[in-house]
């Protein structure tokens, strides 16, 4: 089962203030444990929304809005993609994320759609093309 685990932004991440050495160290050691357990597929931090943009489609027409996005309270600041055997397992891993102290943090866990979840719209042709893309990506970037 594949899950995306997301940490939300805070004023520090939105200001692109680098995490302390202690925090980076603790996080990289945690990521190491995920790697050793064979559950980590990917992990990334995202910079401030000031470095980004929104493309908003209305009736098929795109409008581009530069960041920062002050109206969104729930921006993503970092995420992991984990491959685990159960919902319980991903929760246990997330409980071990090294956020200590008095700060209140919420980490969101969402299950990733995999081929079998997609219903009839996901035809055999689509599945083959998805598999072909995954293979090409692995070959080029894996």
């Amino acid at each position: 089962m594949r899950f995306m685990v997301m940490v939300k932004a805070n004023p520090q991440s939105e200001e692109n203030i680098a995490p302390s050495t202690e925090d980076l160290d603790a996080m990289s050691r945690y990521n190491d444990e995920l790697v050793k357990a064979g559950v980590l597929l990917d992990a990334n931090g995202l910079t401030s929304s000031a470095d980004g943009a929104l493309v908003s489609f209305t009736d098929g027409e795109p409008t581009v809005i530069d960041g920062p996005f002050t109206e969104a309270k729930e921006l993503v600041a970092g995420y992991w993609v984990l491959e685990v055997k159960s919902r319980e397992e991903v929760v246990e891993w997330v409980k071990r994320v090294p956020f200590e102290g008095d700060e209140e943090v919420e980490i969101e866990i969402r299950q990733v759609y995999e081929a079998g979840d997609f219903g009839p719209g996901y035809t055999d042709d689509i599945r083959d093309r998805q598999d072909a893309m995954a293979a090409k990506i692995a070959e080029r970037h894996g």
Binding site: A18, S20, L24, L46, L54, V55, F57, T58
Partner: peptide, 24 residues
């Protein structure tokens, strides 16, 4: 149906954190 919001964000590079030690 023609109405979707797509957010674009930059992925951080560990090298851009001056707080990252060579070990990290």
């Amino acid at each position: 149906h023609g109405n979707a919001t797509i957010e674009i964000r930059r992925v951080a590079d560990i090298d851009e954190y001056d707080t990252a030690t060579p070990e990290i």
